[in-house]
């Protein structure tokens, strides 16, 4: 059973995502910020990371760089409710930083599950 790390600062969103993923048959590790997420990832056994970009303490983009440093092959899906500043969304940046898929909130449950399934199929 694949293990997925979900990081989001909004508790309701975190809960929703874990519900969706659990209903899809995955094991979910939850983190409410980038620091916590990194700690969980370092524990090992995480096959895929779903992370919000805009978060307090440690931004999603920074986290992506950290995950990449630990494991360059890490599979990351970045999600965002939108950007507060800047001409380009962070999602585009996240892609450049190494996120394999990006979703703009609100997205459909199935979209996320499909993307995860697709990524996990890769060996």
């Amino acid at each position: 059973m694949a293990r997925i790390l979900v990081v989001d600062d909004e508790p309701e969103v975190l809960l929703l995502l874990s519900d969706i993923l659990e209903s899809g048959g995955y094991e979910v590790v939850k983190a409410t910020n980038g620091v916590e997420g990194l700690r969980e990832y370092q524990k090992g056994g995480v096959d895929l990371i779903v992370t919000d970009i805009i978060m307090p303490d440690k931004e999603g983009l920074e986290s992506i760089m950290d995950y990449k440093q630990i494991n360059p092959e890490v599979k990351i899906i970045a999600i965002s409710g939108g950007a507060r500043i800047g001409p380009h969304t962070y999602l585009k940046m996240a892609e450049k930083f190494g996120a394999r898929k990006v979703f703009s909130k609100p997205f459909r449950n199935k979209e996320l599950l499909d993307a995860i399934e697709e990524l996990l199929k890769e060996q």
């Binding site: 909004e10 309701e12 969103v13 519900d19 969706i20 409710g81 909130k105 449950n109 199935k110």
Partner: peptide
Amino acid sequence: GTLAGGIAHDFNNLLQVVMGYCEILMS
């Protein structure tokens, strides 16, 4: 614009929750 952007972010998170659970319930 900045204000709108900020609101949109929070709004999207809320909508994500609303619509996500709605989708779960519908399924």
